[in-house]
């Protein structure tokens, strides 16, 4: 069990590291593309396209890690006004709702991914790019987000601090 949880954490952080690496890649790709253009070469169109796709991948790869880091902003209004016992209940309830939303999107994302394979769908830009390579990120991202939010439902830590304001 402990090994499983360590393996899972490795995946979660591994995905975040990959997101960070892609952010650096975006910078390199733009610089290369401009550089090539200005020395009279034709920039590879995939450089440009890869930066657009990177926006999706970065978001999907990093979002579950950010849940663990409590980095998704939320507003503490109701939770700040409640007595502690009730606040804990509401906080866990909100986390549960987040698990639900994530699960629905993971499930629908998985269906979308399957449809894209069955229909042989392409994303049409400079290249024809198989769509499933993009949509496969949905079940992974939202699946992991569901797990991370469920830690705030069942775990010792709460999502909400009880202090008024917007929180990270």
């Amino acid at each position: 069990m402990q090994q499983l949880s360590r393996f899972y954490s490795l995946i979660l952080y591994g995905m975040a590291v990959l997101a960070g690496a892609m952010l650096v890649w975006v910078m390199i790709a733009v610089i290369m593309s401009v550089g090539m253009r200005n020395i009279g070469m034709q920039p590879w169109a995939w450089l440009f396209t890869s930066t657009e796709y990177a926006m999706l991948y970065i978001t999907m790869l990093g979002a579950p890690w950010l849940v663990r880091e409590k980095g998704h902003v939320h507003i503490e209004l109701v939770t700040a006004a409640l007595p502690p016992a009730l606040r804990r209940l509401v906080s866990r309830g909100v986390a549960l709702a987040c698990v639900l939303v994530s699960l629905i999107l993971a499930w629908k994302g998985f269906e979308l991914f399957q449809t894209n394979i069955a229909r042989n769908d392409y994303d049409v830009r400079a290249y024809y790019f198989p769509r499933w390579i993009l949509t496969v990120s949905f079940p992974i991202c939202f699946g992991l987000m569901a797990i991370e939010f469920s830690r705030f439902v069942f775990g010792t830590e709460l999502m909400h601090s009880g202090e008024a304001g917007i929180h990270e």
Binding site: R37, G40, M41, Q42, P43, A45, T49, V124, R125, A126
Partner: peptide, 25 residues
Amino acid sequence: SGIKLRGNAVYNAFFTEYLGAQVID
């Protein structure tokens, strides 16, 4: 040659393969 031609998915096949243009998306 030397012209910076703006391209997109519809005409890139023509612009790059025939005209040999330096296409910028």
